[in-house]
Design a protein around this nucleic acid. Structure first.
Lengths: 166, 166
DNA sequence: CCGCCTCTACCTATCAGTCGATAGGTTTTG
DNA sequence: CAAAACCTATCGACTGATAGGTAGAGGCGG
């Protein structure tokens, strides 16, 4: 049954997006799901495995969602995705946090964060070639805006910092 | 003698900028300085105290440095500061990491990160009033660019993402 | 000058709590 | 019946933090 496994991934994703890799434990996640920490290890042997799996699922889910909208609306779509997450529960991009913490992260986890940014930037300025750095600029603005909105404890900061992206 | 205290702050700043709040311990810092962890507690009773002190010193130092340059060159100055830190040892903005992790941080530490962004944005678009959100946009771009450069393990990402900042 | 005192800095030793992880038994499910 | 899921119990390592002792510097009265 994949439901427990998904619940573990859900809980872990929430935890990481709130406090980062160092901000959660197997016991935290287990308690969220309603099982014991040993059972989390049964599905994901190590913390590295679990975190990497969360990041991979996160990336695949978002990339797929954005690929469903036309090219010219993708920047707005990304902005809306992050805006909603921030408004609803004050959480930022999973791979944004992982990127920030990357100096103290296991290599496979950093690799997943890297993959996210490679694929995410590719969904923007895919072919227009004038500025192949547009994707980098857009995600830098979005990630930084989330980070600042959280630090300043004001969701409006995200809107104001990214207003010119639309 | 304030030298040890400064060394503790230096080591802690390096540690946090690399791996975040959850990525260092009193024993790590003590080993860096060449003393015992109990001696770190002597200068900074709790991890919250230590981290908040590091963030405050960091903020004061950078704000003062930027205030020494004329208004129209400040964006470039901030960009240069962060670019150098990233190039030299792959470290990002201290308060950027803290902002990302803020969901699992003690309140006084978050307050210091907040203070940084309030003062930092104020050094830009201080009076020209046309866009009082310019500071937010600039720092979102800078913080996000650092984060991505680290995640993608490529310092050039920072340059490319912030090239349009002037 | 000496002896004394106090303060700061640092130490050793230890605490209880939590961490990731494992071994091995039990329950559920197909 | 076999496999997958979940459990209890425990491990050693590490965490932040505390208690209490030691060494040395500086001030001060005599």
């Amino acid at each position: 049954m994949a439901v427990t496994k998904d619940q573990i991934l859900d809980a872990t994703e929430r935890r990481i997006r709130d406090g980062g890799y160092g901000g959660f434990s197997f016991r935290d996640v287990a308690a969220d799901v309603g099982i014991k920490s040993a059972s989390v290890h049964h599905h994901f042997p190590t913390k590295t495995d679990l975190s990497a799996a969360v990041a991979r699922r996160y990336t695949d889910r978002l990339i797929e969602a954005v690929q469903g909208v036309p090219d010219e609306k993708r920047i707005g779509e990304w902005r809306q995705i992050f805006r909603n997450a921030l408004r609803q529960d004050g959480r930022m991009c999973l791979c944004g946090i992982l990127g920030a913490e990357s100096g103290a992260l296991p290599e496979p986890v950093v690799a997943e964060a890297k993959r996210f940014f490679q694929l995410a930037t590719k969904t923007i300025a895919d072919k227009d070639t004038v500025h192949q750095d547009t994707g980098l600029r857009v995600f830098a603005a979005l990630e930084g805006a989330m980070l600042m909105a959280r630090a300043m404890d004001d969701p409006d900061v995200f809107d104001r910092a990214t207003a010119s992206l639309g």
